[in-house]
Design a protein around this nucleic acid. Structure first.
Lengths: 126, 126
DNA sequence: TAACTGTTCTAATCGTGTTAGTACAGATAT
DNA sequence: ATATCTGTACTAACACGATTAGAACAGTTA
């Protein structure tokens, strides 16, 4: 959980970096369903970021049904993250759409795209 | 050239939308190498945007070697756009990398990725 | 009760994209 | 030469959103 890297100088807002980082932890299984997230205040202290920014990220993750929060209890990874998974696959489709669109502009062959995926896939095998 | 759509309410800056639009015109061949771009002032008038914003976009495109500008003469599509092409292919690779990375998080099969590319490719055939 | 939790709110600050206006220098047609 | 176009540079002001700061409220738990 605490291996999330925040770049305060980045153009992407801190709360979005937080969302992406935590989302990755959850989807990758590094955080199990039901597991407790650090409290808003403690994570804010750990990352040297304002609690409001953490709160904003948590609220967004809750909207995406990746976590659930309750006053007094804390925030926890959702028991069922499949709905969030589905939305995430949509993001992947958008990535591929963008790549195909750009490839058409450069008149790149389709085979080159699938070859690149092959190569990237092998290169990231654990 | 003038079929570039600018969304002033978008989160992405206007000058980036301009860059993307003009880049697309050039890479797709809609604008030929050597062809003149509209002047900073005329395009600003046509799109109802401040000339400084157009200038910022042109400066960025020149940095990417997609166009070249000279005071008094105007701005023109570069004679040789292959260097810019190369950089653009890098962007495609990044898109695919992101997709592969996200797919791994969801434990999506590689075949599903290539299938999606197949489908998207067919769907965008002119 | 005390100490934790999330949540909400306002005000101030800061960065950056955008606008507005002006000015300068090079090119070109008249 | 003059007029008019071109790109370029600069400052000041404005707008918007992200972030911070601080306070307050409500629910949970030991």
């Amino acid at each position: 959980m605490s291996n999330i890297r925040i770049d305060v100088k980045s153009r992407t807002p801190i709360f979005e970096q937080l969302c992406a980082g935590i989302r990755e932890e959850i989807l990758s299984g590094a955080m199990a369903p039901g597991e407790a997230l650090p409290s808003v205040r403690s994570l804010a202290c750990e990352l040297a970021i304002n609690p409001n920014t953490i709160q904003k990220a948590y609220a967004e993750l809750e909207r995406q049904k990746l976590i659930s929060s309750a006053p007094g209890r804390g925030s926890f990874v959702s028991d069922d993250i499949r709905p969030a998974m589905g939305a995430f696959e949509e993001r992947i489709l958008e990535d591929l759409r963008a790549a195909v669109h750009r490839a058409r502009l450069c008149s790149i062959e389709k085979k080159k795209l699938t070859d690149l995926i092959d190569k990237e896939w092998e290169g990231t095998k654990q």
